[in-house]
Each structure stands twice: as structure tokens, then as C-alpha cells.
Simulated scan of single mutants.
Amino acid sequence: MRVVLITGAASGLGWHLARACHARGDHLLLTDIDAGGLAARVAELDPARVLGIAGDICDPDLHRELLKGCRKRFGRLDVLLNNAGITHRSPTVQTDPAVFRKVMAVDYHAPLELTLSALPLLRESRGQVAAIGSMAGWMPVLGRAGYCAAKSALGQAFEVLRAEIDRDGIHLLMVYPSFLDTPIDRNALGADGKPAGHARSTIGKVRPADRMAEQLLDALKRRQQRLFPDRGSWAASLLWRIAPAFYYRQMSRRFAGEMG
């Protein structure tokens, strides 16, 4: 029996991960801030193998509830999938600092703190951790200063953490996708913290979330350290380092509509 904890599991990539893990026979602990959506998702799966606990992933009390519930219901934790995330679409100089703080809290502080809290259970199982970073953590994207900063912080922290927990037999996978077809962008915040009122711009293709879920789980099975599912965005990150002026010109044209 393998027990998997998935954050942000009520929609998007989290739900695709939950369905794929369930199909593989895993027992699941699912969490999401959308209590109604989470309850509906749990009802679609085998209740004997699934526990749902709703709450704000930034709340340390939720972390304690999740891990207590995991030990009580399943007795172990084998895989932690840090999927929950949030983004914004707004020029830096126009954005309320509260938006930056919220994005940083959800995309960086929450996954790091939950992972640290889960380490005792993961040590017992010599388990695995995965975190959803972004190519935006490697290269600047106009209108995403808070998101780029949060994903950069997440990537750096978990790259350091990998070496430290490897001594305990815990494997860590960092995933660096580009643009996915998930609610994270449809629910993006605007400069004032309300839903963004304009469509997003992208670099490269928008990838389906179900395919991303399968790639992630296969990477865990192979015990990869990093997953770069979109070679186009990976190439763009190299372009940013090799020819930053050219990269800025191209990005400025692609994202001009978001700058107001």
C-alpha cells in the first residue's frame, strides 16, 4: 500500500494526479481550499482509499491536521505532492504588495513548511517528495514578478533540501513545467488582488494537465531529481542566460497586451 498526499487536489493538475494515483492503486489524502469541490472529487473515488481534508494550505493548523489524519487513517505517508499554487498577472509597479505576499505564501512558504512537517512520516517510509516549480523561476516573465520570485525561491530551497534529506533515504523531485491548462491561470490575481481581468500571454505551447500528471508520476517511479517536460521553455531559459537582450525583446512583444 502506497499513501500519497496531494495539495490543491480539487482541480487542475492536482485532480489529474489524484485520478492517476488512484488508478495505480494508491491510497490518497487530498486537500484543497475549495471544500465543496474537494468533497465532490473524493466522492468520485473509492471512499475506502481516499480521505479529503479541506483548508488553506498556508495555515500551519491544516498541516498538523493533514499529518495527524494521515497517520491515524493510513499509518504512513509515502509520497507528498506539493501541487497547490497561485499566480498573478499584473505589472510590478501597479501591484498591491499584498498580492506578492499571498503568492509567496502559497507558492513558497506553504510547500516548504508542509514538507518539513511531513519529514518524520517520510523518514519512516523512506518516501518521496515532489514540488511543482516553474520555468518562470528560471527566467523573467513580464507581469509575473511575484510568481517568478516565489517559484525561484521554491526551486532553490528544494534543491538544497534534496541533498539534506537524501541522507534519510527520502527522494525529492523538482518539476519545472511551463504553461499548463489548469485553473491556476484562469484564477490568476490582478494588481488589486481580485481576479485578473485580461487573458494571459504565453511562451510556447499550453500543455494538458493530464499528460503532465503522467510525466510526473513516471519521473517519481524512475527516481528522477528534476523534470523538464517542455523542451521549448527549457530552451527559452537558456536563451535568457545566453542572449538576455534578445530574450527581453521577444518577451516584451509577446506580453505587451498585459502591460496596460
Rank of each mutant, 00 (worst) to 15 (best):
S11Y: 01
G12M: 10
L13H: 10
R19Y: 05
L28C: 04
A43W: 03
R49I: 04
I53Q: 12
D61T: 10
H63T: 05
L66I: 13
C70P: 02
R71K: 08
K72A: 15
R76A: 10
S90Y: 07
S90P: 02
T92A: 11
V93T: 12
T95A: 02
R101C: 02
H109I: 13
L112V: 14
E113V: 04
A118L: 05
L119H: 08
P120Q: 08
V129I: 15
A130P: 00
A136V: 13
G137T: 04
V141I: 15
R144A: 12
A145R: 07
C148A: 15
S152I: 04
L154V: 02
G155W: 03
Q156S: 14
A157K: 00
E159F: 08
V160F: 06
D166Q: 12
I184G: 05
N187G: 09
L189F: 13
V206W: 02
V206P: 08
R211N: 06
M212H: 08
A213K: 13
A213M: 12
E214L: 15
A219F: 11
L227T: 04
L227Y: 07
D230E: 10
L238G: 06
W240L: 01
R241V: 03
R241Y: 06
P244F: 11
Y247P: 02
Y247F: 13
Y248G: 06
R253D: 03
A256P: 04
A256E: 13
